[in-house]
Amino acid sequence: MRANRGRDTGPEVALRSTLHARGLRFRKNPRLDLAGGHRVRPDVVFPTERLAVFVDGCFWHGCREHRTLPRSNASFWRQKIEGTRERDQQQVAWLEAAGWTVIRLWEHDLPEPGAQRVIEILDALRNPTPET
């Protein structure tokens, strides 16, 4: 378990490299202190636009398309991954309540499709369309 990185994973680095190559500047893994004493540490943050990006690994976050559970101690892993999914949902709720936009990307959507999604949402946040 110690060999599994909590940050700077391959998919995170690939996304950040792609975003940086496209001229975007951001913060990586900053701690955001939210109301109620909640703390969240997104993988990539655009503070001015209040955009938080999380990169979720298929195994650890329970991707329905690519996940596989180990055969040994399956109930432990099922419970652990479900706990991770619940924590993910709670963090999104805290951030959105604080006025942040949140993107969760699967590792299998990186780097290009994920980077394109981030760019599109950033563009929408930077250039909101006037309501008619």
Rank of each mutant, 00 (worst) to 15 (best):
Lys80Thr: 00
Val92His: 07
Arg71Cys: 01
Ser17Asn: 15
His108Phe: 09
Gly114Tyr: 11
Glu12Gln: 14
Trp94Met: 00
Asn4Ile: 15
Pro130Gly: 03
Met1Cys: 09
Ala74Met: 04
Arg7Pro: 00
Val53Met: 08
Gly57Arg: 12
Gly62Thr: 02
Leu15Gly: 10
Leu24Ile: 00
Ala93Cys: 04
Phe54Ile: 03
Asn127Met: 04
Cys63Thr: 03
Ala74Cys: 06
Cys63Pro: 03
Gly114Ile: 13
Asp109Lys: 11
Phe59Asp: 04
Arg67Leu: 14
Thr9Met: 11
Ala74Phe: 05
Gly10Leu: 14
Ala35Thr: 05
Val55Cys: 06
Ser75Leu: 10
Val44Tyr: 03
Asp33Gln: 13
Arg64Ser: 14
Leu51Tyr: 06
Pro42Gly: 02
Ala93His: 11
Arg126Glu: 11
Gly6Glu: 13
Asp43Glu: 08
Pro30Arg: 07
Val45Gln: 05
Thr18Pro: 00
Ser72Cys: 05
Thr84Asp: 04
Ser75His: 14
Glu49Gln: 15
Gly10Glu: 14
Ala98Arg: 01
Ala21Trp: 04
Thr129Phe: 05
Phe76His: 14
Leu34Lys: 03
Gly6Leu: 04
Gln79Leu: 02
His66Asn: 09
Gln90Lys: 14
His61Pro: 03
Glu86Asn: 07
Asp43Ile: 03
Glu131Phe: 10
Asn4Lys: 15
Asp56Phe: 00
Phe59Asn: 07
Pro11Gln: 05
Arg126Pro: 08
Pro113Asn: 09
Glu112Tyr: 08
Ala124Met: 04
Ala21Thr: 08
Thr68Trp: 12
Arg64Asn: 09
Thr48Cys: 02
Asn73Met: 09
Leu51Glu: 02
Ala124Phe: 00
Ile121Asp: 04
Ile81Val: 15
Glu120Leu: 13
Phe26Cys: 12
Pro130Asp: 12
Thr132Cys: 06
Ala14Glu: 14
Val45Pro: 01
Leu24Phe: 13
Met1Tyr: 03
Pro113Glu: 05
Asn73Asp: 14
Ala21Glu: 13
Phe59Trp: 06
Arg78Asp: 11
Lys28Cys: 13
Glu96Thr: 15
Ile81Trp: 09
Ser17Lys: 15
Pro113Arg: 10
Thr132Leu: 13
Leu95Ile: 06
Phe26Lys: 06
Trp106Tyr: 03
Leu51Cys: 09
Lys80Asn: 11
Gln90Ser: 02
Val13Gly: 00
Pro70Ile: 10
Arg27Pro: 03
Val13Arg: 14
Asn73Gly: 01
Arg27Cys: 13
Arg78Thr: 15
Ala21Asp: 14
Thr68Val: 14
Gly114Asp: 07
Pro113Ile: 12
Val44Glu: 06
Leu125Arg: 11
Val102Ile: 08
Gly62Asp: 08
Glu96Leu: 05
Val55Phe: 02
Leu32Gln: 10
Gln90Tyr: 01
Arg2Asn: 02
Lys28Asn: 12
Thr84Val: 11
Val40Thr: 04
Ala14Phe: 00
Gly62Val: 01
Glu120Asn: 12
Asp56Ala: 08
Gly99Asn: 10
Trp100Val: 01
Arg25Leu: 06
Ala35Ser: 15
Asp88Ala: 07
Arg50Met: 05
Leu105His: 11
Trp60Phe: 04
Gln79Arg: 13
Gln116Asn: 15
Val13Ser: 07
Arg126Trp: 08
Met1Thr: 12
